[in-house]
Design a binder for these strands. Structure first.
Length: 216
DNA sequence: CCCCAGGCGTCCA
DNA sequence: TGGACGCATGGG
């Protein structure tokens, strides 16, 4: 059974093994949002190329993206894959943001309200919305992703059919509501996932979570 | 050649 | 409500 002690133990093990990750890698909150959309099912190194292209073109802003020609956007973000979908998603998000008056104008909006607004944008799902809330807006929201699910399933800490919201609840109910802790916890899970919890390999040698086998 | 990546919307039962 | 499928590039 998952409880506070277990979650904190997992955190300590990861931190001990991998050190501080200091996420999200971006220069501005808006860049976090763009990265969150571009990294959907995509390797981060490919996202970096796309962001670099946007920067060099001077289009890494809500105004720039909202006003850009589709074909122009396609070329710039092509390295990140799914570029037609993602161009549309970036535009939808940017236009929404401009209507709101920018990220700064959202600082008094309640987190729950913001989450629903974000989820209503086509192309922004649970993980993207929560990443934006946590890493761009500093809201205490735990981000769940494929690695979170795979790692916890691999260690028999959850059942296979668990939903996104249920898994998120597990963290948010059992951890202190701490933005910095949430940021670092998710970053560490991604790093552990990349290095020790590959899809194919049933056994992950050297995993800092080795032996955490608890049960439902 | 293969598999994989910090998902999401659509379609169909 | 929930599972299959398409979307696409770059690295190992």
């Amino acid at each position: 059974m998952i409880d506070t002690d277990l979650l904190l133990d997992i955190y300590r093990r990861m931190e001990e093994a991998l050190g501080h990750q200091n996420w999200w890698p971006a220069e501005t909150p808006f860049e976090v949002c763009v990265g969150a959309i571009l990294t959907q099912n995509t390797n981060w190194s490919n996202v970096e190329r796309a962001i670099k292209n946007l920067k060099q073109a001077g289009l890494l802003s809500p105004e720039g993206i909202a006003a850009a020609e589709d074909e122009r956007l396609f070329e710039l973000i092509k390295p990140a894959g799914f570029y037609k979908q993602k161009a549309k998603r970036l535009k939808a998000f940017s236009k929404w943001l401009l209507e709101q008056g920018g990220l700064d104008a959202l600082k008094d909006t309640p987190t729950e309200t913001l989450r629903e607004m974000l989820l209503s944008i086509k192309g922004v799902g649970h993980e993207t919305a929560d990443s934006i809330l946590l890493y761009a807006l500093d809201r205490p929201v735990f981000v769940v992703d494929a690695y979170t699910y795979r790692i916890f399933l691999r260690h028999n800490l959850i059942y296979e059919e668990i939903t996104y919201n249920e898994l998120q609840e597990l963290f948010m109910r059992n951890l202190p509501e701490d933005v910095e802790l949430f940021k670092e916890y998710h970053a560490l899970l991604v790093e552990v996932g990349k290095r020790f919890c590959k899809k194919k390999k049933p056994l992950c040698g050297g995993c800092p979570l080795e032996g955490i086998n608890s049960l439902l």
